[in-house]
Design a protein around this nucleic acid. Structure first.
Length: 217
DNA sequence: CCAACGATTAACT
DNA sequence: GTTAATCGTTGGT
């Protein structure tokens, strides 16, 4: 398995504070290979969740059976069941014992579009979906990759799931309020921790955000 | 044990 | 813009 223009990430690449890692995830590729083939998604939108100090985080009230994966080694997938319907994917960040992660909110399917589409054909209008919308939204991204209850804890340095760094990383991103997280005065005031690549068709046009230049890599 | 609530989506007005 | 669908997790009784 290879991806032109990308190289595989090491465990240590994930070993940094969540707010530092979050923008670096943009432009990376997440791939999954099964007997049916490979689907790879280039990440265009993420949200950071900062653990015990973050009221929006699943880890805010400590360790539970559900969020245990976030307490483990970085470079694994924390997959949780959302609204009785979706299997949303997070990249576990920072050192083991620091329960932080980034929710993968959207991406562009760069390999296996046919397979990704077939995984979404349960939805009546899926056959009419433009390719750019196959992995738009966290639930849809999870669905395009076929994530399930079994996905929680998967290692991104394994054979089935893999994480890829772009040879030519994006130089610019935007930040804004997280989606679906409430808080006093609006969560966005305190935690503008949604990061996305401007101008990407796979990113839904939510609220406007602030442009930030990258500080070099 | 039980009731409330989502890190959402798609369909409908 | 609004709302129903849908069910595991959580926290309180």
């Amino acid at each position: 398995m290879d991806l032109p223009g990308f190289t595989r990430a090491s465990r240590d690449w994930f070993r940094r504070p969540v707010l530092n890692l979050a923008p670096l995830l943009l432009g990376c590729a997440l791939a999954r290979t099964t007997g049916d083939g490979t689907v790879a998604v280039r990440i265009t939108e993420v949200e950071a969740y900062a653990g015990p100090a973050d009221p929006g985080s699943h880890a805010f009230r400590g360790r539970t059976a559900r969020n245990a994966t976030m307490f483990g080694e970085p470079g694994h997938l924390y997959c949780y069941f959302s609204y009785g319907v979706h299997h949303n994917l997070n990249v576990v960040c920072d050192e083991a014992g620091t329960p932080t992660g980034c929710l993968l909110r959207a991406g562009q399917v760069i390999r296996g579009a046919e397979l990704a589409r077939s995984r979404r054909t349960a939805k009546p209008r899926a056959t009419a979906l433009p390719e750019q919308h196959l992995a738009r939204g966290p639930g849809n991204l999870g669905q395009a990759l076929g994530s399930s209850r079994e996905t929680d804890g998967a290692d991104l340095l394994g054979d089935e799931w893999s994480w890829w760094l772009p040879q030519d990383p994006p130089a610019l991103w935007r930040t804004g309020p997280r989606v679906g997280v409430s808080g006093p005065g609006g969560d966005g005031e305190l935690h503008p921790w949604r990061f996305w690549l401007p101008g990407e068709p796979s990113v839904s046009a939510y609220r406007p955000g602030t442009a930030r230049a990258s500080r070099g890599r």
